[in-house]
């Protein structure tokens, strides 16, 4: 289906995709909402870097991605500091609440992949996403993106074939439950 044509500066139509991408990145719905809000705040501060006339979606996705990376890094630093000070570790490994979001077999399998593989598979699945744009969003050379993508596909297929033990009992869903 063709994407709805909207004014290039209209952000609201992209919120659904941004939130779902945030969910793929964080694997936690509350974290995903936090990340999305963080990213929007950053985008507001960085509005001057948007090129008028260009599609806002890749720009927004790359801000979301960068925000996620720096949040992760900050947490690692915090966790390391906490370890050093022998404090209780901050709640970085909060219990995953993905159960709140109903995922089909495929998405359940995807969520088991490492971060970098989930990212590429998700971005490239977006309608109209060129390799070049996806590579730019992730800050990778296109060649690296393509090889990572091939590895991610292989890993996903392995998980789906039962290597990960996920969804063996379930029959392949005819319709993905969202």
């Amino acid at each position: 289906m063709p994407r709805e044509v909207t004014a290039p500066f209209d952000v609201e139509p992209h919120l659904g995709v941004l939130r779902r991408y945030a969910l793929v990145l964080t694997r936690d719905p509350d974290e995903a909402d936090d990340l999305l809000q963080d990213a929007l705040v950053r985008a507001i501060a960085a509005a001057g870097t948007w090129r008028p006339g260009s599609d806002a979606r890749p720009w927004l996705l790359s801000i979301l991605h960068n925000t996620h990376v720096s949040r992760k890094r900050r947490r690692q630093v915090e966790a390391a500091a906490a370890r050093e000070l022998a404090l209780d570790p901050p709640a970085t490994s909060a219990p995953r609440q993905l159960a709140r979001v109903q995922l089909g077999q495929t998405m359940t399998a995807l969520m088991r992949l490492p971060d970098d593989q989930r990212e590429v598979l998700t971005l490239v699945a977006l309608e109209g996403m060129a390799y070049k744009d996806a590579a730019e969003i992730l800050g990778l050379p296109t060649g690296t993106l393509m090889s990572r993508l091939a590895r991610a596909r292989e890993a996903l297929r392995r998980v789906l074939d039962g290597g990960g033990g996920a969804g063996q009992a379930e029959r392949p869903a005819l319709r993905v439950v969202r």
Partner: peptide, 27 residues
């Protein structure tokens, strides 16, 4: 995956929508 990404299931938090509107206004 594409279907999963076309999220329209749950409403977006009002605070998020407000941020998105402010961003749209700036752009």
């Amino acid at each position: 995956l594409r279907l999963f990404l076309a999220d329209e299931a749950e409403p977006i938090a009002p605070a998020t929508v407000a941020l998105a509107r402010e961003l749209s206004r700036r752009l």
